[in-house]
């Protein structure tokens, strides 16, 4: 464990806290992509299958349960719970996620760390996580303006994988024979997708004024 990875996990937890607060207290899922939340639920449920046999640390096992529980709760609330379910707009949030899941599944089959079923599923989850934010970014693009809490949610989510990139650099230089090309590649793509958002987020938050984040 190193500070970058710890801060990355804290940023990830923060993103869950912000989103859960927004949809439970704000009673609205407006501006939140259910598609992205469904993809995250698939990512965590598939990647953390090793919950039952890979106890690398209590910290990991605990957070795996937390991430599966939170992502499932978010999907449940937006899909089934009133009044949130009425604030979800299927016409706006209509990114064809099958075009993300399909290629990631093929990639997981072909490029993984070991030819076992779990490793193929694990690689699939890594690739899927890299592109899972796309429906959310498309939704924000359509709306043009980003609600304040939503902007903090996306920023925390982007920061989490960005901090993981620093964690991988740190591990590469401090551990011998540390090689994780799959997560390095996917994590770079994932963080890259946020660059444009981060630019507009920074512009809107600069100078302390909380002007709304505007995406062109």
């Amino acid at each position: 464990m190193n500070i970058f990875r710890f801060l990355g996990d804290m940023s990830h937890i923060l993103s869950f806290v912000i989103l859960l607060l927004k949809i439970t207290q704000g009673k609205s899922a407006a501006g939140i992509s259910l598609r992205t939340q469904e993809l995250y639920m698939i990512v965590f449920c598939s990647r953390y299958l090793d919950l039952f046999w890979n106890f690398s640390s209590l910290y990991n096992s605990f957070l795996k349960v937390v991430f599966i529980a939170c992502s499932s709760a978010i999907v449940y609330i937006i899909r089934f719970k009133s009044p949130q379910k009425d604030t979800w707009n299927p016409e706006l949030d209509n990114f064809p996620i099958q075009y993300l899941i399909g290629p990631c599944a093929v990639a997981g089959l072909l490029i993984n760390q070991d030819w076992t079923p779990f490793e193929m599923i694990w690689a699939f989850s890594i690739y899927l996580e890299a592109v899972a934010i796309l429906p959310q970014l498309f939704l924000l693009q359509k709306q043009g303006e980003v609600e304040n809490l939503t902007s903090h949610y996306v920023a925390a989510l982007g920061a989490y994988r960005g901090l993981y990139l620093m964690n991988w650099v740190y591990r590469y230089f401090t551990e011998d024979d540390y090689l994780q090309r799959i997560v390095w590649f996917a994590g770079t793509v994932q963080t890259g997708l946020y660059i444009d958002f981060f630019y507009h987020y920074y512009q809107s938050k600069r100078g302390g004024l909380s002007r709304p984040v505007k995406l062109p």
Binding site: N54, N60, D114
Partner: peptide, 10 residues
Amino acid sequence: RHHDVNHDEL
């Protein structure tokens, strides 16, 4: 070749 892939990250 079953090298034990041990994922120690989330």
